[in-house]
């Protein structure tokens, strides 16, 4: 693993459903915290809208509590930049995941999905992430691979896909390292592993 000096500060990770992306991200965060003495911080974006979601969230919380290293949790489902005052320069932030955040922003208001609103949503998410990462020691952002199926024919899906694709492209551009997880195996797509 990298030395202190070459530690990347912004990492982007995607994968399909059950690809192992979350546990890869958690292990990476724990390793980084161990090496740098950073504070493990889970940035939770999930809103428990139903029973199944509540159980999932609870399981994730339990997992992090019983982990070898303790995790601190920050909960924010929209406008994440408002959490900035809670972020310290020693924090290793894990945000999982961007699609949840995008859903929250898109469906939080009864807005029509016009270009102005979509631009605002994109800006809110990107500046939010940027703001958090610039205050922290490091930030790992996890998202989903959902753009490899037909998106034509349904305007809502098409618009959502376009927005998510643009956000992912931007995050990859910003990232020091970007990983695609396939069946539990991380593929380094950007950044050289030392």
């Amino acid at each position: 693993m990298k030395s202190l000096l070459t530690n990347p500060s912004f990492i982007f990770i995607t994968g399909g459903v059950r690809s192992g992306k979350s546990s890869f991200a958690e292990r990476m965060a724990e390793k980084m915290a161990q090496e740098t003495g950073g504070v493990l911080t889970y940035f939770a974006t999930g809103v428990s809208t139903d029973h199944e979601m509540a159980i999932r969230i609870e399981k994730h919380q339990r997992d992090r509590q019983t982990a070898k290293q303790p995790w601190r949790t920050i909960e924010h489902s929209t406008r994440i930049e408002t959490a900035a005052p809670q972020i310290g320069s020693n924090d290793i932030i894990l945000l999982d995941c961007v699609t949840t955040l995008l859903n929250n922003e898109l469906f939080s208001e009864q807005d029509v999905w016009d270009e102005k609103f979509l631009k605002k949503v994109k800006r809110t998410i990107l500046t939010g992430i940027h703001c958090i990462k610039s205050r922290a020691k490091a930030m790992i952002v996890v998202s989903n691979e959902v753009l490899n199926e037909p998106i034509f024919g349904n305007e809502l899906v098409f618009t959502y896909a376009r927005l998510l694709g643009q956000i992912h492209q931007h995050l990859v551009k910003e990232a020091d390292h970007a990983y695609l997880i396939e069946a539990g195996i991380p593929i380094l797509m950007k950044g050289a592993e030392k």
Binding site: L147, N148, A161, R162, L164, G165, H168, Q169
Partner: peptide
Amino acid sequence: MHFVTGGAFNGK
């Protein structure tokens, strides 16, 4: 022939 593929809105 050069085939360029990938998901939608990936910047192809």
